[in-house]
């Protein structure tokens, strides 16, 4: 449980960080909160020769509003997400989700960017970013580019991030005021990854669903945007039959592994239960707003 030897770098700008990452290629890893990388290093499942610590780069921090979008810097901690008045007003589902990540100690160190960038299927923010149709800003040796969250994840720990690239910020389109939302996560205990979890954001037109977006956490090797299930609830009042149909459509795209959280069958069923419960809660909130 002790990491192998490595070189430690502490750049003060994105350009410097990117140069280091590009120079060392696969031998380098960026270090943000460290709550995914350092346990892997302690198990020697990750043995980077170079750690590029992002803590001293001011440009990577902070939450701001940019027109109809909210931009969250990569090294913003989960605790800062939870404490943000701006997010509480515009995107309350972020704090609701962040509160269900790990525990207060970890949320104080763990970063928003690390959570979305790493491609760990157990992380909660990736599915939420897919639900919200967020866009990731990546900086690399050849300049910057953006990748939608829905296109970013390729497999467990495999993402669109190229060697030498760094995720610098996430842009989230702000849903209309009065939207309904819910992040429903089934887990064994505080600190655990989801057995299954579902993120829902919807808007109403009168009593029926006008727009809806559903995404799933930890029931496949990547987060899943449940497009069919989302489409299916639009125009309905979320009656019991619709909830069941949406849950079934969501379950159909899952491919969970059997693990200590339960059998694949159980985890797939729980994805359905979480979808139905998140939809119902989002509906209640939208009506109450």
């Amino acid at each position: 449980m002790i990491p192998g030897p490595f070189h430690y770098h502490r750049p003060t700008s994105v350009a410097e960080a990117v140069a280091l990452l590009a120079a060392h290629g696969d031998d380098a890893r960026p270090l943000a909160g460290g709550h995914s990388l350092i346990p892997m290093m302690k198990l020697r499942m990750a043995v980077p020769d170079h750690l590029v610590d992002l803590a001293a780069i001011p440009d990577l921090k902070g939450i701001c509003e940019d027109g109809d979008r909210i931009v969250i810097g990569a090294t913003t901690t989960q605790r800062e997400v939870i404490g943000s008045d701006l997010l509480a007003a515009r995107l309350p589902i972020l704090a609701e989700t962040a509160r269900q990540i790990a525990d207060p100690q970890i949320r104080t160190k763990g970063t928003f960017g690390g959570n979305v960038a790493n491609g760990d299927p157990g992380n909660d923010m990736p599915a939420l970013m897919q639900c919200l149709d967020a866009v990731y800003r990546l900086a690399g040796p050849d300049g910057s580019r953006t990748v939608p969250a829905r296109d970013y994840y390729q497999g467990a720990y495999f993402t669109a991030l190229e060697p030498g690239e760094l995720l610098t910020a996430v842009e989230i389109p702000v849903p209309p005021a009065g939207h309904g939302y819910a992040y429903e996560k089934l887990k064994r205990k505080v600190g655990d990854y989801a057995t299954a979890a579902a993120a829902v954001v919807l808007t109403l037109d009168g009593g029926t669903v006008a727009t809806a977006s559903i995404a799933l956490t930890n029931v496949a090797s990547t987060p899943l945007h449940a497009a069919a299930a989302s489409a299916l609830v639009i125009g309905t009042g979320l009656d019991a039959a619709t909830l069941k149909a949406a849950a079934d459509a969501a379950k159909a795209i899952t491919d969970p592994a059997t693990d200590g959280r339960g059998t694949a069958e159980y985890r797939r069923e729980m994805a359905g239960v979480m979808v139905a419960r998140a939809l119902a809660k989002a509906m209640r909130r939208a009506k109450g707003a």
């Binding site: 525990d103 205990k189 505080v190 600190g191 990854y193 200590g260």
Partner: peptide
């Protein structure tokens, strides 16, 4: 041996 860490081995916190 499966899950020989506190991620899988159930040690309840004050919350549970």
């Amino acid at each position: 041996v499966q899950g020989a860490s506190f991620m899988d081995f159930f040690l309840p916190t004050a919350v549970e």
